[in-house]
Amino acid sequence: MNILYTAEALSTGKGRDGHVTTPDGILDLDVVPPKELGGSGAGANPEQLFAAGYAACFHSAIHAVARSKKITVENSTVGGRVNLGSNGEGGFQLAVELEVVLPELPADLAQELVDAAHQVCPYSNATRGNIEVTVRVSDD
């Protein structure tokens, strides 16, 4: 792999009940289990961070694919949802849902861009074959 960029983060405390920082200070926040997992919910959690990262990365991939095809994309959004569940073997697993809105494009063109973005997005490539990822084009 030809490395183009490296991100670093440090977790301190007790992981899901701790603190995360990046060397540049851009991220500096408490990580707290959600109420659904017995925590206070008074901070971010790893699944929220993953959902935000995947949504932003996938959104960028859509724009990159659109530029390569000379298609203008405006007013687009990508919503990310990360589900955490039991794997039935004493461990946990993730599933991801991405909802893409490309309001100014015909449905078939929007789907074509989303399908292409799913092939180039680094998050999609990292998760492919490892966790269930559902990508849906929506009007809303």
Rank of each mutant, 00 (worst) to 15 (best):
T127D: 14
N125F: 10
S11Y: 10
Y5T: 05
G53K: 00
A61G: 06
S68A: 14
V101W: 12
S68E: 14
S60L: 11
S11E: 13
G129R: 09
A95V: 04
T127F: 15
G91F: 09
P23Q: 02
T12N: 13
N45F: 03
S138I: 10
L49N: 03
A117G: 08
Q48D: 01
V31M: 07
T6V: 13
Q119P: 06
V100S: 01
G80R: 01
V135K: 01
L4D: 09
G53P: 04
A117I: 01
H19W: 15
G88C: 10
P122N: 12
N130L: 11
T72D: 12
A55H: 04
M1N: 11
Y5A: 11
A95T: 10
K70M: 11
Y5S: 09
E36N: 03
Y123T: 15
V137E: 03
T22V: 00
F50N: 07
V100I: 14
A117M: 03
H118Q: 05
E97R: 05
E112T: 12
I131K: 13
Q119I: 07
G53N: 08
L27E: 04
D139T: 13
T21K: 11
E104I: 07
G129K: 11
D115L: 02
V78M: 03
A7W: 02
S124N: 12
F92W: 12
I26T: 14
L27K: 04
Q111S: 12
N83H: 12
G13T: 04
F50C: 08
V114G: 00
G85L: 11
G91Q: 13
V100E: 00
V20I: 08
A42S: 09
E99L: 10
F50W: 11
V65Y: 00
V31Y: 00
L27C: 09
E97N: 09
L113E: 01
T12V: 10
E97A: 09
A117D: 01
C57K: 04
I131H: 09
G85K: 14
I131E: 13
A42L: 08
R81H: 08
K69N: 14
A7D: 00
V20A: 02
A61V: 00
G13L: 01
G90P: 09
G85R: 13
A44H: 06
G25I: 00
A51Q: 06
L94A: 10
G91P: 14
N87F: 04
Y54A: 03
A110G: 12
V120D: 01
D28P: 09
S11C: 15
E89K: 10
L109A: 12
A61N: 02
D28G: 07
E97F: 00
E89T: 10
A110L: 06
V120Q: 02
G79T: 12
V31S: 08
S40M: 05
A116P: 06
G85D: 11
E112G: 07
G39Y: 04
L29D: 06
T134M: 10
K70C: 08
Q119E: 11
A52Q: 14
T22E: 06
L109Q: 15
G88T: 09
